[in-house]
Design a binder for these strands. Structure first.
Length: 315
DNA sequence: TGCCAGGCGGGGT
DNA sequence: ACCCCGCATGGC
């Protein structure tokens, strides 16, 4: 499918803003190529934005089949109006996150659609960074929609409907999803009934409860979904990885209590940045690095990391 | 080869 | 409220 260009616009961000960091983080190579980022916006009518330019001015080209106003959505996705100054001052001296206001200054988390965020979160369950993202890349390749914009091939993540098609379970197994396949399909059913829309209208804590109604979605997956799609940062998505890290780095027994005290209403975003600064290393290496103060992401680690995964082929 | 990894639910106490 | 186990899969 080839999408035609509809119109262009320019956006300004609240300072400090770093477009390159914002686009490169947790991007597959079909979403970022080192200069431009592709942002899927709407499934129906199919609409995609291509984003490039400088930190001072973000240039946007909107591709699709019919005229749609996407400015507000795009500002939200790129976090252009998000003020991180309070977060930065909170983590300035944090042994895990002290590099965020420096090395990663101006980087925003790109928001995902609620359904795509849930899919991402399920793929992180009981899996390493590499396994989770490899699984996800295969799901996109097998079930997503390939679209051309400006001669670039990109992939639109599959919506809930696609995950409910006859061959979806087979393809999920093929993608290596294992027992998560059932969870994804169950979640897709509920998503089609409006589960995520409902969650987005509630308080974070109520939203978590609603998402947990789905069998296979627990606290971690629900909270991560709220972080990635709704910028609801106050609930901490605590997995074994972060729990171990916090226990060792801060020398405490109750990781959740400690992290809440340190990160406050920024817990979710802080979790996201923790994986970035430690290059999503497996726990043994992440621990070694954190304890020896190596909390700056490596420019090139030789393997995919959150910041460099766009440089790699995923198959 | 086993064993384990950014969870989870079910069944035990 | 805990603790413990199995669960698909892939990587080492």
């Amino acid at each position: 499918m080839e999408l035609k260009e509809l119109y262009e616009l320019k956006l300004q961000a609240k300072e400090p803003f770093d477009l390159n960091l914002t686009l490169s983080c947790y991007s597959f190579n079909w979403w970022f190529n080192g200069r431009a980022g592709v942002i899927p916006l709407l499934e129906e009518p199919m609409t995609v934005a291509v984003v490039s330019g400088s930190n001072l001015e973000v240039e946007v080209k909107v591709f699709g089949v019919e005229q749609v106003d996407v400015e507000k959505q795009l500002r939200w996705i790129l976090g252009l109006d998000e003020d991180l100054s309070d977060f930065y001052s909170k983590v300035e001296r944090d042994p895990l996150l002290r590099e965020v206001p420096k090395t990663l200054r101006g980087m925003r988390m790109r928001a995902l659609s609620p359904w795509n965020a849930l899919l991402v979160a399920i793929c992180q369950q009981n899996a390493s960074f590499m396994q989770g993202w490899r699984m996800l890349s295969r799901i996109y390749k097998l079930l997503g929609a390939e679209v051309n914009v400006e001669g670039l091939k990109t992939i639109i993540p599959p919506g809930p409907g696609k995950l409910l098609s006859d061959d979806a379970k087979v393809k999920l197994r093929e993608a290596g999803a294992g027992y998560r396949a059932e969870v994804i399909v169950e979640a897709a059913k509920r998503a089609r009934e409006g589960l995520l829309k409902e969650a987005s209208s509630l308080s974070p804590s109520r939203a978590e409860d609603v998402l947990r109604e789905v069998k296979g979605i627990g606290s971690y997956t629900a909270r991560l979904t709220l972080v990635l799609s709704m910028r609801m940062y106050e609930l901490l998505p605590l997995d074994r990885w972060l729990k171990r890290l916090a226990e060792e780095v801060y020398g405490v027994e109750d990781a959740e209590k400690e992290l809440k005290a340190r990160w406050g209403r920024w817990c979710g975003l802080a979790t996201y940045f923790t994986t970035v600064v430690l290059d999503a290393e497996v726990i043994s290496e992440a621990l070694r690095r954190a304890l020896s103060g190596e909390v700056k992401p490596k420019p090139y680690a030789g393997r995919p990391t959150p910041l460099t995964m766009w440089m790699h082929e995923w198959r």
